[in-house]
Design a protein around this nucleic acid. Structure first.
Lengths: 163, 163
DNA sequence: AATATCTGATTGCATTATGCAATCAGTATC
DNA sequence: GATACTGATTGCATAATGCAATCAGATATT
């Protein structure tokens, strides 16, 4: 699958690692949607990812060191996917994408408000979110999830306004 | 070419607009490499883009409002490609990609130093660079290009050290 | 005036990625 | 024992990508 990189440019290498139509969607859902299982990623995806594509991307992301996989004790066939540190460090990149998208694409309102909060919170909020993700995904302990909850609350508040 | 978006998520929409293996490479070369012509983009590309892909991407980027095209007075078949404001606003996103790539991929040294400068300069340097790009691409006047020159000088200094 | 070179592309063809629908074999639930 | 849920895989069609060759008009060279 992986040949030699086209160049040693950091932008190019980032693009080669994540520049397809689905990898960042999966990562986004794990980070902001707190999805940890295959079935959650498959059925609760806004974009409707196909099962074979999801399986392929999970495989690739694990091979690339973006995700790790453990057995879920509750079900012998169930797996839990966790973020690695390098994936957690994509938060600023996702924030930049969200900020640009909010300005220059036709985003839907409930999703825009989350992007707005993420942008206005700036590096300080990103750092908090990243620490929470580290606690959840790397240390495997109950974490305080203030930043996540804040983003989630804002999103749900926006949803209920439109209802 | 463009169907309905898969979702209204800003990250997804950004990905749908630019999430392929070449669009951002072309934009990067125009922004940081100051390429303005088809032939420059084709032959001076680190990654070796194919001519048909380049032609397709230029077409798509123009259709998407990322680039504009004018005739070059020096040659009746020559075209000059310019950035639009929304493309200039990708600078922070490219900076985030470069910063992540520098930490987590095997970047080459001369290209890494440019990414380092871009990261350390932070939003202040990005703003300067963006203003220079506006002057060059939007106002069509001779612009002071300090930030660009700084990045270029650092890159060349690094190159000559390795020689 | 002929030739060569440079301009921004396009064409043909092979390979690869993506997408949809159906299916799979274990596991758990009822 | 039937049903549903688990993380996938398979078959097949369509779309994107990549390489090499080629194009015609414009300019430069001799």
């Amino acid at each position: 699958m992986n040949d030699l990189p086209r160049s040693g440019c950091p932008i190019n290498l980032t693009l080669e690692a994540l520049g397809d139509r689905w990898s960042l969607i999966v990562i986004r859902d794990i980070i902001f949607g707190n999805r940890r299982h295959y079935r959650e990623l498959l059925t609760r995806s806004e974009e409707g990812i196909a099962s074979n594509i999801l399986a392929d991307r999970l495989k690739r992301l694990m091979a690339g060191g973006f995700l790790t996989r453990e057995d879920d004790p509750s079900h012998k066939q169930k797996a839990i996917y966790s973020l690695t540190e390098k994936t957690i460090q994509l938060v600023p990149l996702l924030a930049a994408m969200a900020a640009w998208g909010r300005r220059h694409t036709a985003v839907s309102r409930p999703l825009a408000i989350r992007a707005k909060l993420l942008e206005e919170g700036g590096p300080a909020l990103w750092a908090i979110l990243m620490d929470e993700l580290r606690a959840t995904h790397l240390m495997k302990q109950a974490a305080t999830t203030d930043a996540f909850a804040r983003l989630q609350d804002a999103y749900e508040a926006e949803l209920s306004q439109n209802a």
